[in-house]
Design a protein around this nucleic acid. Structure first.
Length: 580
DNA sequence: GCCGTTTTCGGCCCGACTGTTTTCAGTCG
């Protein structure tokens, strides 16, 4: 039976939420959105929850009650939902696609359908280009132009972009703003501060004795393409790099409440405001207040404290259990940023990397790392000039030579061994034995079904020499979906066979992703964080992986390459000795 | 449609800006 995934359920709930919003139904839209969000952050498939615990188990999902249990059961058993089909009969519009346009919401979609029978992005673009929108009740020239600009942006940017490709720009803009006279602080907030793998825009929170000068500086930055909003304390611009930036300037005394507000996530904020409300208070960007009296606003810490919570690290703020943990004083002690001591996936010019082993080693050493592992591709990846047993042995000698030459640094012998279609490895065990670390990965036959793919990877993990599974789900953000693999089974096998799972932190991989890191850690599986660097410029991505690991609630002990080189080698060689 | 130290009814997060307005709805973060 085709099983409905959480992702599909969430999409359906969000769609219902928006249709109901368009129909001006009260409160239900939020109920569906809330349940959708809760399901999104579940660590388990809803279909499995139902199979194991029945309706009572569904009831335990926050935001799911009598009515939604019924709908979930229908979705799980038929993969369809009559309620949504009925809604769509009356309102046959691709509302999710249309509301993805900036400035277009459910009400506007409703009116566009009412007047012009616009059902999708294509209809809307055609109508806007034909100038049919201006003149409709409630629509004028400006709205029509904004819709066209929004469509243009959507087509170019297609939503969220990878944090790693934009972080330098965001930090540059922050640093430029900091130079404005009168400015005492400028910080990045939003999903950048939360270390999310993708972002929609830059959120900046600033304090200045001269807000006007700071906003003017913001408008005049050479990176700005056009100004979208000019408020007294707030501005919104579109950058030439096709991403938006939002700046708010607040007085020093409410910097804490402002950065809390603009860091989000939205769902985390909703919970905090609700807690404030239960005490008869309000919480907004200007502070936690009782009537007109401010109770806390200067720092995030005092606001959390007043609400009875420990301060919560930004990476945890997703309403995924962190508030309950903060209430119970049981927040994890997250791995500090900067904990990773060495990069364990690096390609050199022996296969498809751009730089020599020595160049990579010296660059890593210059950045303060203590070791790297050289993980060139192996022979069946011919297009990447993969190494066979003979070249691997030769590379080992070269690494020995460099280790004698480069002081206070260790180059580890490793490889990115290719997992073949049937789960065998493409390098003989006799050669694997000579490596310091054996890492394996899938690079072909991405279209196998779940059973074949999962079985194939587990078979590779069973090889007694294997230490690390690289990029366990194979996804490339905005380009390639995960291959069909049962990650829960992979995690179980990782525990059983003592194989670490990689968090490949190249910006568009981020594989394992945050929620899977959390699952792995909860199962007692070790993680390694590395960049998959193919040139020295890629080594800088380690902090992105550290942030993602923190989003997965990782502590220092969960991440193997926070260990010094000696201890790391000892950890991996223990397995080697057991296998003889 | 959910939820409960306001507990089975009556609430449901908050403020700013834009565009269309002339007092406000829609959208966003």
């Amino acid at each position: 039976m085709p099983k409905i995934s959480n992702k599909q359920i969430v999409e359906i709930f969000y769609e219902i939420s928006q249709i109901l919003e368009a129909r001006e139904v009260a409160f239900k839209p939020r109920a569906y959105a809330r349940a959708g969000q809760a399901i999104e952050s579940l660590g388990q498939e809803v279909a499995d929850i139902y199979r194991e615990g029945g309706e009572a188990a569904l009831d335990a999902i926050p935001g799911v009650g009598k009515g939604l249990i019924e709908k979930l059961v229908e979705l799980i058993s038929t993969s369809k939902l009559k309620y949504l089909m009925d809604l769509k009969k009356k309102f046959p519009v691709d509302i999710v696609e249309l509301t993805a346009i900036e400035g277009v919401g459910p009400k506007m979609v409703r009116d566009l359908y009412k007047y012009l029978k616009i059902k999708n992005l294509k209809d809307l673009e055609r109508a806007a280009r034909a100038r049919k929108i201006a003149g409709l009740p409630g629509f004028q020239e400006k709205t029509e132009q904004n819709i066209l600009a929004g469509i243009e942006f959507l087509k170019k940017g297609m939503g969220r972009v990878c944090l790693g490709f934009y972080l330098d720009l965001a930090e540059h803009i922050r640093d430029e703003l900091r130079k404005t006279p009168g400015t005492t602080r400028v910080e990045l907030a939003g999903s950048i501060r939360r270390g999310k793998e993708t972002i929609k825009d830059f959120d900046l929170v600033a304090c200045s004795s001269n807000p006007r000068a700071l906003l003017e500086k913001f408008y005049s930055l050479p990176e700005v393409a056009r100004v979208l909003e000019r408020g007294k304390n707030r501005a919104f611009v579109r950058l030439k790099d096709k991403i938006d930036a939002d700046l708010i300037v607040v007085p020093e005394h409410c910097f804490g409440s402002a950065i809390l507000h603009f860091t989000g996530s939205k769902f985390h904020n909703v919970r905090l405001r609700k807690m404030a409300q239960e005490r008869g208070w309000t919480l907004n960007e200007y502070g936690l207040a009782k009537g007109k009296k401010i109770l806390a606003s200067k720092t995030e810490r005092e606001i959390y404290k007043k609400l009875g919570l420990d301060w919560i690290e930004p990476e945890l703020r997703e309403d995924a259990g962190e508030i309950e943990a903060a209430m119970a004083r049981k927040l994890p002690k997250l791995m500090p940023m900067g904990s990773v001591r060495g990069d364990l996936q690096i390609q050199s010019d022996w296969s498809d990397g751009a730089n020599s082993i020595e160049q990579m080693a010296r660059a890593a050493k210059g950045m303060g790392f203590k070791y790297i592992a050289i993980t060139d591709h192996t022979k069946t990846l011919a297009m990447a000039n993969g190494l066979d047993e003979r070249r691997l042995a030769k590379q080992g000698k070269e690494i020995d030579r460099l280790n004698r030459k480069i002081k206070n640094f260790k180059i580890l012998k490793s490889a990115e061994i290719n997992i073949l279609k049937d789960g065998k490895l493409d390098i003989e065990n006799s050669a694997l034995r000579k490596l310091d670390i054996v890492s394996v990965a899938v690079h072909s036959h991405f279209n196998q079904d779940e059973k074949a793919m999962t079985g194939r990877i587990i078979k590779a993990m069973r090889n007694p020499y294997v230490n690390i599974l690289f990029h366990p789900t194979g996804r490339i953000i905005n380009r390639r979906p995960e291959y069909k693999v049962n990650i829960d089974e992979i995690i179980k096998a990782a525990k059983k066979y003592n194989v670490a799972l990689e968090l490949d932190c190249f910006p568009d991989r981020m594989d394992l992703k945050d929620t899977n890191v959390r699952k792995a850690i909860e199962a007692g599986v070790k993680i390694v964080i590395d960049t998959d660097a193919h040139q020295v410029g890629h080594l800088k991505y380690i902090p992105l992986g550290e942030a993602t690991a923190r989003r997965g609630w990782a502590q220092k002990l969960d991440v193997l390459n926070t260990l010094p080189a000696q201890k790391l080698m000892a950890y991996f060689s223990k397995k080697k000795h057991r296998r003889g």
